[in-house]
Design a protein around this nucleic acid. Sequence first.
DNA 1: ATGGCTTGAGTGTCAAGA
Length: 255
Amino acid sequence: MKIATWNVNSLKVRLPHVLDWLHSQQPDVLCLQETKQEDKAFPADELAAAGYSSLFSGQKTYNGVAILSRTEAQQASFGIGGFEDEQKRVISATTNGVRVVCLYVPNGQAVGSDKYEYKLRWLAALTRWLRDELEQHPRLAVLGDFNIAPEDRDIYDPVAWKGQVLCSDAEREAFRALTGLGLQDSFRLFDQPQKSYSWWDYRMMAFRRNLGIRIDHILLSAPLAATCKACDIDREPRKLERPSDHAPVIATLEL
DNA sequence: ATGGCTTGAGTGTCAAGA
């Protein structure tokens, strides 16, 4: 079973890339973030023609998440239990016996800003909720754009970025609280190339210079981590014309 | 040098991303 996550930065613009990538990679599940579409505009027909059923939760202009799956996903749920949020950032569903949670964690804008405080509140609520979800669903996978670089090796210039949003102590502590629940960062279960990143700024020729950060993650509960054979970042779509600024991350489970 | 692109909204040019 192959499960993947990709922040597409507008599904309307990126649909051709997504369709090509589904065709070439054949994942069983693809979690999308920043679809930036209302549900009535979601391209479910085009995706169905490509062999994928869709569950989605969108809004105009911002945010928006979706779960695409080759076999129809069941028991869809929306948002974080017990946390009121207007922003469409979480969708969950079960497929092939795996509970899939697709996340678009708030960016946080700047340390100390209102949006940063919202990010930390949001992450605290997420952790409380996932503790319960793990009890109900031992085979749990949490995929998405976490907007957190967990360690210095996940940033091209950790000195320049020190203490900034995406890598502040409080954000990293929130990430460790998630792994502390028993959710493992599947990327770090394996030897990986130095300077592996999942996001590069559109400016400054950042991708060509590999000035990136690793903020898109696939976390697996222990029973799933035990089946994980690989986790990789696919840089190829970032090389295309009009790319998303994020690369997809894909994990292979022996299920 | 707080910008450098890209998107959506909407037709001016700005907010937001990370």
